[in-house]
Design a protein around this nucleic acid. Structure first.
Lengths: 320, 320
DNA sequence: CTGAAAGCGCTTACAG
DNA sequence: CTGAAAGCGCTTACAG
């Protein structure tokens, strides 16, 4: 038994002959080690928890893919948790993952505060925040900072003469949500064209909210002439609302989105968007965690986002 | 110890007073049961393996989401495996999942044959096939049959006078790949307009292959006038190729896709597609597995797919 | 109803 | 280098 274990694992002190005999037996019996028993004894499960708000969002999906690849290369499996932007669901998942003794957690929290996560980190559970994070928690964050790109976007929109800019913002209880909103607001204010009352709408990063808020914007007495959606799902919903209302982009309204998505270049006009280095983010998070698990320190990683100018912003009535 | 265990679990024979004391202690110590130890003893992990070809494909992603919801409601967690259409990766994942003692497997296999999966099922591992399956294995399948819808699509295309139909098919080593191809071929042959030599291209269900094969089609001496892509990712690639080549849809070429995706209605023209009941498929699979795990039998579920006619098919030169 | 004991399948000091 | 033994943290017959 002990010899088999040694053969299967660190292979140090086992004689070649014995090793061969064990290997042959393992083969012929098609013996499959029980990872549960191993985990109980060794106190590690080689599995990580990945808690994200929405598997249906290509942004997270692409990130998850990168996380999984990097994790797999390092011998880790992933248990997924889809929180649906719901702190309650998040709490449940976290609890289950902890009971299952995951070695570490990659989480993109639903809110910018979380006593639960604070407690976990304090108790020494290895956690890496991905994209979103909880303030004041001593855990590394991997994300991209979109402020510069948002500022460029404001400049870009204004270069076409727009003065009525609006934003479909993500929840302000979320770091990226608030950051994008502030960058947009600041960008406009700095150019002495502050965003008007009623031109700030809050969605929840999901499609429906983009659809609804765009409708509200369209129903205003003075609708905006340029709209920025703070993520790709809300952009999808907003675009649907625009199409349904027969509003032409960019002749009637300029439009841009945070997050770049493959089909943005296929629609007519193609959508100007701010692209995050999605895969890099996922990979960085997954590479960081094993170090943390091993008791090392890890530095936060902040990458830049980039404005990708396409055809959805222009002059009012232009390009007709 | 035993009493705590009883209190935390099936709660039968524990007196109310003791139960309260235990509960209080659990609370005040914030005791968290170790699921690994529980699994070792109880021989079940309450976790399922979900093995799919591509997390980046919205079809699988939406399905995964449904699987996860249904699994969660039943107290199961999910370990994800992304095979990338690679049988080798699939084999590795399966092995890891088995070592981790998952209670059951939901798999969408990369190929239509798999000695490994055959072995597992024979050994009594609960397996449900989702979307794709391996022939001759005694395991339930949850999928949708697109043959009728493909036939309708052929009819629809021909109603505009097209005689040069082409298909960007999925791998024929895959059941849905082959099924869609055969339905397309039969539909055309039955209408006495057999698909010509060179109008059948094989992709691998991924974007790049759609892009490449569409380019090949375009470079033919006599390019087809109507093209059907056998899944949404290849459709995305094909549409990119069309756009790059300046081919107008449907004036220059009619186009349709298997799988419906949210942005299909946003592009100009909106894309005619065959929609599968994706969430229902995922849910059905996740509901079925616990029964199998419990030793019950489960019946395969075959749902219908539906042709959604939009604007991407029409007469040559029409609608200009 | 409750506690003591065995055992799930491994890993890893500890002897030899 | 190899084997016997303890122990990881639970669950569940078995007594009482």
């Amino acid at each position: 038994m002990a010899t088999v274990s040694r053969t299967l694992n660190r292979s140090d002190r086992v004689s070649p002959e014995v090793r061969d005999r064990v290997t042959a037996a393992v083969e012929s019996l098609s013996y499959r080690p029980n990872a549960v028993a191993r985990s109980l004894k060794s106190r590690n499960t080689r599995t990580l928890g990945l808690v994200i708000p929405n598997v249906t969002n290509p942004f997270f999906t692409q990130m998850a893919r990168a996380v999984e690849d990097a994790a797999r290369e390092r011998g880790y499996s992933l248990i997924f948790g889809n929180t649906d932007e719901d702190p309650g669901k998040e709490a449940e998942y976290l609890e289950v993952l902890l009971e299952k003794q995951v070695d570490g957690l990659i989480v993109s929290p639903a809110r910018a505060t979380s006593p639960q996560l604070e407690g976990l980190v304090r108790d020494g559970v290895p956690v890496v925040f991905l994209d979103r994070y909880v303030r004041d928690i001593e855990a590394p964050v991997v994300r991209s900072d979109g402020r510069r790109a948002v500022d460029e976007l404001v400049e870009h929109m204004m270069s076409f003469g727009h003065e009525k800019l609006a934003i479909i913002s993500g929840p302000s209880e979320t770091v990226p949500g608030r950051e994008r909103l502030e960058a947009f607001l600041n960008g406009a204010a700095n150019r002495t064209v502050p965003i008007g009352e009623g031109y700030v709408k809050f969605g929840d990063f999901r499609r429906e909210s983009g659809f609804e808020t765009m409708r509200e914007l369209l129903n205003l007495e003075e609708p905006p002439t340029a709209v920025f959606a703070a993520n790709n799902l809300m952009a999808l919903g907003a675009l649907q609302a625009l199409k349904r209302a027969g509003v032409r982009v960019p002749e009637d309204m300029s439009f841009a989105s945070f997050d770049d998505v493959s089909w943005f270049e296929l629609v007519e006009p193609s959508i100007t968007a701010i692209a995050q280095p999605v895969s890099e983010l996922g990979t960085a998070a997954a590479e960081m965690l094993p170090a943390l698990v091993g008791g090392e320190e890890a530095e936060s990683v902040i990458l830049d986002a980039e404005l990708v100018v396409r055809g959805s912003c222009g002059e009012i009535g232009g390009r007709v």
